[in-house]
């Protein structure tokens, strides 16, 4: 480990966590990560989301998507700064984010707006919808090329392509900030997290590298 890295937890526990992570099959992450989708839908059907379940479902799914995107973005800083290696779960986190974005979009289309003409009008006239949709469209090719075949086939270009997730997470967080009434804290926290996780990827200034 580099001398300047943060050590919030001891090297021993990081090693233990890394060992545990190596033993955890990725399908467990897919399963547990996907579960809140059907659960929240069932709650909507049975009154668990309150008197207006459509918006509640739509918002819950959108929030899960943003949370998984942020979790995916945290993987490489965690390895670099804390020595925690969760890289084998990154594809699962990204695909789960895409799964929730898709469900969020479907609920918006089918349950919320309902009328095709109104959908188009919203897309072109409402900036927060446009921003959200742009985020979804950016994620689409990433989800399609998330398989091992595409990674081998695209080689270096795969890495370049998948940097689009940086823009997608910013668009997603911006979409969240834009849709609230009044000055509200929750969307701003998500937006700051997104900006922070992206900032960690910027080349470090010299002062920080001095101790290396």
């Amino acid at each position: 480990m580099k001398a300047w890295t943060w050590r919030p937890i001891s090297d021993v526990s990081v090693a233990a966590l890394n060992r545990a992570a190596r033993r955890l099959p990725t399908w467990v992450v897919y399963l547990l990560g996907a579960l809140p989708g059907p659960v929240v839908f069932y709650q909507g059907l049975t009154g668990g989301l309150g008197p207006e379940p459509i918006k509640a479902l739509e918002h819950a799914l959108g929030l899960y998507a943003l949370q998984f995107l942020l979790a995916g973005l945290a993987i490489s800083p965690l390895r670099r700064l804390a020595g925690l290696n969760l890289i084998r779960f990154r594809r699962a986190l990204g695909l789960l984010a895409f799964y929730y974005v898709s469900l969020h979009l479907l609920v918006w289309l089918l349950l919320d707006v309902q009328v095709p003409a109104a959908i188009w009008a919203d897309l072109v006239k409402r900036p927060y919808i446009t921003v959200g949709m742009a985020g979804f469209l950016l994620l689409l090719p990433l989800a399609l090329t998330s398989n091992s075949f595409s990674i081998r086939r695209l080689g270096r270009r795969w890495r370049q392509l998948h940097r689009a997730v940086y823009a997608a997470v910013l668009l997603g967080a911006l979409h969240f900030v834009m849709l609230r009434k009044g000055l509200q804290i929750e969307p701003l926290i998500y937006f700051s997290l997104a900006v922070g996780l992206l900032a960690l990827r910027l080349p470090l200034p010299r002062v920080c590298r001095k101790a290396e």
């Binding site: 207006e52 459509i54 009328v115 109104a118 009008a121 919203d122 409402r126 900036p127 927060y128 834009m178 849709l179």
Partner: peptide
């Protein structure tokens, strides 16, 4: 500006 008022739920 952010949504239509033509319909309601």
């Amino acid at each position: 500006p952010r949504w239509s008022q033509a319909t309601e739920r």
